[in-house]
């Protein structure tokens, strides 16, 4: 800790000053940005469990691999998502450092976008499911596909807002999985989401964690 010089007027060697700048910058960045490992991996686990269960229920050919009631599978998916959200929100707030201004506005508008977008996609899906022409599997696919559309687009938008390429490409990946999965059908959609999105989040977390540690070193 560079705190022995209480009034801060001590003469600094330029080399010492440069070291101080780099050290302090790393420290601040690490404090202001939570470890990405804990921001991505909980989502990776949640997607793997949630969509994995969905896949086991749906099966690739229409025959379930494990007979799980629809309500239970949906419940597990939502619970897994809720836990991931709780973990990331908790860690995001835990920095406890109050910053206001541009970042706060961005974060707030971005957060509202998620709620509004999900509310919209939920309304659309409910309407079409309520008409009753879709069977259980197709109705489920509609819900999943609309949700992935919202998530993918918002990840891309988040990447644009924070100029964060990883986030942007996660969005692109989610939409690619969504397109292929929707074309291939309910079972494939769940399987691809489990493997590519669940696994993708975990990989992204590991990669970003390394980058984060390097930036803070």
């Amino acid at each position: 800790m560079a705190g022995d010089d209480e009034n801060g007027e001590g003469v600094l060697h330029p080399r010492e000053a440069l070291r101080l700048i780099e050290e302090q910058r790393g420290q601040v960045r690490r404090r202001l940005q939570p470890d990405p490992l804990f921001m991505y991996v909980p989502w990776g686990v949640a997607w793997t469990i949630g969509f994995g269960v969905l896949f086991l229920r749906l099966g690739l050919t229409g025959e379930p691999y494990v007979p799980i009631p629809s309500g239970v599978a949906t419940g597990i998916l939502l619970a897994a998502m809720a836990v991931a959200m709780a973990v990331t929100v908790f860690l995001g707030l835990r920095t406890g450092i109050s910053v206001r201004g541009v970042s706060q506005d961005r974060g707030m508008m971005y957060g509202i976008s998620w709620s509004v977008a999900f509310f919209t996609s939920g309304t659309i899906a409910s309407r079409f499911v309520a008409v009753g022409r879709l069977d259980d599997r197709e109705a489920g696919l509609l819900w999943s596909a609309l949700s992935l559309l919202v998530i993918g687009v918002l990840y891309m938008a988040g990447g644009a807002v924070w100029r964060h390429w990883t986030m942007f490409f996660i969005g692109v990946g989610i939409l690619a999985v969504n397109i292929v999965g929707t074309m291939a059908g309910p079972g494939w959609h769940a399987l691809l989401t489990t493997v590519c999105c669940g696994g993708g989040f975990i990989v992204a977390g590991l990669v970003e964690h390394r980058r984060w540690r390097k930036a803070g070193a």
Partner: peptide, 19 residues
């Protein structure tokens, strides 16, 4: 000066427009 340099570095790490 050591202490002020640290203050400036920390503030500079915030995005412009943040307080």
């Amino acid at each position: 000066a050591q202490a002020r340099l640290r203050v400036v570095v920390a503030l500079n790490a915030l995005p412009e427009g943040d307080q």
